[in-house]
């Protein structure tokens, strides 16, 4: 089976500083790929190049090929808005937009011009994000007044409203309590059956728990990538070993 996304020779610069060096990486369908590495390793830049969020940063420039269904996602001709609808994203900090829970969830479909079956989808995505039971009676409550963990699950649900093919998660649990974190991890295991997840995390334990394969970045380079077990038990590179055993990062 060929990979869903194949990243070839991806480099990126913030201003004059190169933050990604010639990354080669394949992402398989229906897997959870954990991306780990110390701060400043280029994990987030890598993630944001997949749905072209880097385009929004005027100082950021990328180079390389991201092959997907026979096209290059790094191509200028790509409709980035449509791309981001296929590749949903959740940020490190929860970003509920002002307005109700319902309004937050309805925004994605509204932007795409689809309004049909909204209520049903709201329930199913909230269930998928393990949030339904907590908010089912108060969908018209202001989203920013939810707790941090609930906000982040709302953001996950909001991304799922797009019915994405790929889910890009940028340290989604970095500010959350352990219970919220485990809820999100549970949700991801469920979601895996019909979509592909790229999970950037600075929590090595989370990567070992939640992902099928792990990619280790350091200093803007992809050091190694392999099955989670292999990376954690028998890493090929000493750098990887040092990182996961807590020697740095």
């Amino acid at each position: 089976m060929s990979a869903l996304i194949e990243v070839r020779g991806l480099s990126a610069w913030h201003g004059a500083r190169q933050v990604l060096h010639d990354v080669q990486l394949a992402i398989e369908e229906h897997e959870i790929l954990g991306v780990i590495g110390p701060a400043g390793a280029g994990k987030t830049t890598f993630l944001r190049s997949l749905n072209r969020m880097n385009d929004l940063d005027a100082g950021c420039r990328t180079q390389g090929v991201i092959a997907y269904q026979g096209i290059d996602l790094a191509d200028r001709a790509i409709d980035t808005a449509a791309l981001r609808r296929r590749f949903g994203m959740v940020f490190a900090v929860p970003v509920p937009l002002p307005g109700s829970i319902r309004q937050n969830l309805a925004l994605g479909p509204a932007l795409g011009g689809s309004k049909s079956g909204l209520e049903g989808r709201i329930e199913s995505t909230l269930r998928a994000a393990c949030l339904w039971d907590e908010v089912k009676d108060r969908l018209d409550m202001s989203a920013p007044s939810l707790s941090g963990g609930q906000q982040q699950r709302l953001c996950l649900a909001r991304a799922l409203m797009l019915e994405p093919e790929v889910l890009l998660l940028d340290e989604p649990c970095s500010g959350l309590d352990p219970i919220s974190t485990s809820r999100i991890e549970d949700a991801l295991q469920e979601l895996k059956s019909h979509l592909t997840v790229v999970l950037v995390t600075n929590n090595v334990m989370q990567a070992s728990r939640a992902s099928d394969r792990v990619a280790f970045f350091n200093g803007g380079r992809l050091v190694e990538c392999g099955a989670t077990k292999q990376i954690f038990i028998n890493p090929r590179e000493k750098e990887t070993h040092d990182y996961i055993s807590g020697r740095f990062g």
């Binding site: 269904q69 026979g70 096209i71 996602l73 191509d75 001709a77 790509i78 409709d79 449509a82 791309l83």
Partner: peptide, 8 residues
């Protein structure tokens, strides 16, 4: 054309 290459 791939749908992602069609801008609307």
């Amino acid at each position: 054309k791939h749908p992602l290459l069609r801008k609307r």
